[in-house]
Design a protein around this nucleic acid. Structure first.
Length: 411
RNA sequence: GGAGAGGUGGCCGAGUGGUUGAAGGCGACAGUCUUGAAAACUGUUAUAUCCGAAAGGGUAUCGCGAGUUCGAAUCUCGCCCUCUCCGCCA
């Protein structure tokens, strides 16, 4: 949630910021109008209540009259608050000044390309061909529906190897491994600034229980500290969460319909940091660094993208994506994302920290980053580690965990 | 699923209609003392919001929501959650 006071004191900055993200700047004026109305009514109600409190048992009639007026005012105020909240939730976080301008993903900026693309003296195959019976989406359609898949054998093994690699890599940096809930309450999703995700119908909703399935463990790790006050000296707090993620992929009809690149259910290891505001840009680079470190360990070629204003997330202050080279497709595809949401989420969830020197309470900054979106890493490994014979080698960094140097692929 | 108990400030815990934002304790912070620390003593110590340049002042908050009352942490109703026992169960 955006800072109310920022809109009040610096509406132009907010207008400009949300316009850069291609949202309607009229939201700011709608907010200001309701807010002014709210303040006026609030003032009157407070004065009436102060008066009401001065009455004793001897002035019942007068007290009753005042009480009725207070009740009327309160009804007005509560209506305005709901309306104001509704508008506020439509306002995205404003981007950092130096985020590249752009309308959509075509205008993201390549920051760097790292790693050698594998040179094949043959036509590289796509991952589905390579995986053979290790990936089965046909039976999955019968059992579940489209956009689901079965992953078998050594690919399943590879998944757990990737989890182990992520844990071994990240724990020394202080990331606490966690397995968070995969269902969260609606107010938690809203607090996390995920209203766009909900509105788009992208979240699976369990009506009987009034719970959403998470689209990422970000959605349940972030709120772990909701309503908490953290001590400055414990920051940054870093978590690495493993969870299954659920997404409807609404609005992606016809896109990546085959295979497991875009599915309703996948597993992911996620990094999440709670940071002091003054350190969050640095922490953001640190998380990006960990993503690059892990791709480096897997010797996978990738490029780092600065996401432009039109493509970045609703709650993001700054976003990087990492795209991994997929020889079977002949292009880089997004495998990781890395966002600094500033205090946007901590306002929505009421997460603060105590400044040691002054005792002051301030909103914390939250950051999230993919460690491994496992399905997509499987794809990247299959395509990058293929041989002329149609075999797939196991990346060196995973061999100890998988227990072999080459995948067994039943034909 | 059945039965019972309970939800008060950072934590523990008192408080059944009238300056109670809330006793007491712990913790934290500051000071005295000490070479330093500990102990002891003294003091400070909720949050949000509105008005205000500030000083300061108003209002709200004792799980959430409604109600009774001039007045509610305290009474009534609904909801949520937690705990204990029994049952079922990975």
């Amino acid at each position: 949630m955006i800072d109310i006071n920022l809109i009040r004191e610096n509406p132009d900055k907010v207008r400009k910021g949300i316009e850069r993200k291609h949202y309607d700047a009229g939201l700011v004026d709608a907010f200001l109008k309701i807010d002014a109305d709210w303040r006026a009514n609030k003032q009157e109600a407070d004065e009436l209540r102060a008066k009401q409190k001065t009455f004793g048992p001897e002035s019942r009639d007068e007290a009753k009259a005042v009480k009725e007026k207070v009740a009327e005012k309160e009804a007005v105020i509560s209506g305005l608050e709901k309306e104001r909240q509704r508008v506020l939730e439509q306002i995205p976080n404003i981007p950092a000044d130096d985020v590249p301008e752009g309308k959509d993903d075509s205008e993201n900026v390549v920051l760097r390309q790292v790693g050698e693309r594998p040179q094949f003296d043959f036509e590289p195959k796509d991952y589905l061909t390579l995986a053979g019976r290790l990936i089965d989406t046909e039976q999955a359609v019968k059992v579940a529906s489209s956009r689901f898949g079965y992953i078998f054998g050594d690919l399943a093994r590879l998944e757990f190897a990737l989890v182990k690699l992520a844990m071994d890599t990240l724990e020394p940096y202080g990331f606490v491994p966690t397995i968070p809930p995969v269902m969260v309450k609606p107010e938690v999703m809203r607090g996390m600034g995920k209203q766009k995700f909900l509105e788009a119908g992208d979240a699976f909703y369990l009506q009987d229980d009034n719970l959403y399935l998470v689209g990422s463990s970000e959605h349940s790790i972030g709120p772990f500290h909701m309503d908490n006050i953290l001590e400055e000296e414990t920051l940054p707090r870093r978590y690495m969460g493993f969870s299954t993620c659920f997404r409807r992929e609404a609005g992606s009809y016809g896109k990546d319909t085959k295979g497991i690149l875009r599915v309703h259910q996948f597993d992911k290891v996620e990094m999440f940091s709670f940071s002091k505001p003054e350190d969050s840009e640095e922490e953001h680079k640190f998380l990006l660094g960990r993503e690059e470190e892990m791709l480096g360990k897997l010797k996978l070629p990738y490029q780092v993208m600065a996401i432009c204003t039109g493509d970045m997330g609703f709650g993001d202050y700054r976003q990087f994506d990492v795209e991994t080279w997929l020889p079977g497709q002949g292009k880089y595809r997004e495998t990781m994302s890395c966002s600094n949401t500033g205090d946007f989420q901590s306002r929505g969830l009421n997460i603060k920290y105590r400044v040691k020197s002054t005792g002051e309470l301030k909103y914390i900054h939250t950051l999230n980053a993919t460690a491994f979106a496992i399905g997509r890493m499987l794809i990247a490994i299959l395509e990058n580690y293929q041989t002329k014979a149609g075999d797939v080698l196991v990346p060196e960094a995973l061999q100890a965990f998988v227990g072999k140097e080459k995948l067994s692929i039943p034909k």
